[in-house]
Structures are given as structure tokens and as C-alpha cells.
Amino acid sequence: MTARFPPRAPDPRKAGIGLRTAHFEALARSRPALSFLEVHSENYFADGGPSLAWLERFRADHAVSLHGVGLSLGSADPIDREHLARLARLAGRIEPALVSEHLCWSSIGGEHLSELLPLPYSEEVLAHVCDRVASVQERLGRKILVENVCAYVRYASSTIPEGEFVAEVARRTGCGVLLDVNNAWINSVNHGTDAMRFIDALDPSTVGEIHLAGGEVTADGLVDTHGAPVFPEVWALFEKAIARLGAVPTLVEWDVDIPELAVLLAEAAKADAILASSIERASRKAAA
């Protein structure tokens, strides 16, 4: 297939932002320099019309990341081939730099729960998930990234620490990892575990993207809302993460109560500053 767009890759030294309908006009007018734009793949599954036309327009200027929330990689249901076909069609049309999905399940018995639900981390589930990741990569003809999710509950049947589980999926299937630092932080607080131990379990060469997001403090623990500024502790964990992983294309997610574009750009600029100082420290260290 001939390419329709110039190849563009995210700049690991700079953050991207989520592309949201409310910002189409402002973004098209101001054309800020951004490492990449990320969209929820499903929001562009239309057969035609304005959503795709806008995305193609932005794709001409930016690297695009397709971030799926619905493939239900860990479900016991068969993979929804129609959903996967739509994703493949979108990827063919947009030529994204990155394609990602979540290490979770969201449908069972044909009913879709429209939420990223946690998996038990066992050898059996690991094998199941790896088969599915491999089959998705084969259908799409490319590598995908898989993202660690927020798990408000943990299962009695889990036998593998989450970091080792994620790392093993990447090792066995050749997929990459989308490290969600906010999810790692929330899980560590809610379950009294060590977020850095989770990050340390990952092979740095497999981490292809980082997500940051804001959440909410509730009586039952932290909740990942994607509707608030990033927690200070998450910025601190992000710094530690990139000190270990090196600079990685980073995205600040904001999906509900979406603020003005300027607020998103300011959060992205904060991530840029941390990425820049990390790169500087690394180069000083290399020179010394």
C-alpha cells in the first residue's frame, strides 16, 4: 500500500496531547509544535464524515497514536473480528506512529462493559493474553503497545506480580509497553505495593510510550478519572521512571471535563521540562 502521509514519529523529548473534538478548531488555528496527537481509536471508527476528515487533516502535520479502549485483549470471549477489522481499516487510513491497547478485559458473553477491567495475573491468563496480542499484531501487520491498567481490585488467583506479567507479555509477543505512570501510582497506593518495583520489572527497551493523567482521592482510595491535573506524586514517579527508562514519548491524558487547549498544553509543557532535564542529566553522566 502506498503511503498517503509523510512518515512521522513522536519525539521522545517532547510530550503529546490527546486530540479532542472540543479542540479541533483551536488546534487547527494555533498549530502548536507537539510530539504527537493521540486519539481513542474507537472514536474514529465511523465509515466517513467529519471526524475522519479532521483526523486526516491533523495527521498531515503530526504523528498520530491510535489508543484503543475496546479490544478486550484479556476477555474469555473470542476477539471481536469486526472491531479488529475497523481498527485495521483506521490504521490503514491514518498510518499511525503508535497503536496501543490495554491489558485488561471489557466484554464477556457478548456484553460490553465499556470499562477497563482487571485481569488475574496467572500463567494461564498470561498464555491466553499472549495468544491474543500475537493474533492482533498479525492482523494489523504491526507491533502494538499494551498498557497497564488501574486495578481497583486484585484477585485471589493472581500468582504473578503485575510488572513481571506485563514484561512477560512483551517478551513473548514482541509487543511494546505503554507505561501508565498514573495507573502504577494508583495501584501502589490502593494496594500498598511499590510502584517503582513495578516499573523496574519492565525491560526499558520495550517501553514505547508513557501516559500521565489526573485522578481523584476518594474514601475507597484513589480513582483514575482522567479529569484533573496530574498528581504531584505522579510527576515525581514519572521523573524516576524516565531516569531508568530514558526519554519516552509521553502523553498527558484528559478525557472528561476537558479543559481549554491551553491547560492541556501547559500540562504537556511540564512533561517536556522533566523530559529535557532527564536528557540533560543523562548526557552529563555520559560525558563524565
Partner: peptide, 16 residues
């Protein structure tokens, strides 16, 4: 594995 996982996921959905 999928039978066990299917049962767990169906029970999760029913509980939620």
C-alpha cells in the same frame, strides 16, 4: 483456561 476465565469474568460482571 478460557472456561475458568469466562466464569470469573461473568461473575465479575454479575457482581458489578
Amino acid at each position: 483456561v478460557t472456561e475458568g476465565l469466562a466464569r470469573l469474568q461473568a461473575q465479575f460482571a454479575a457482581a458489578v
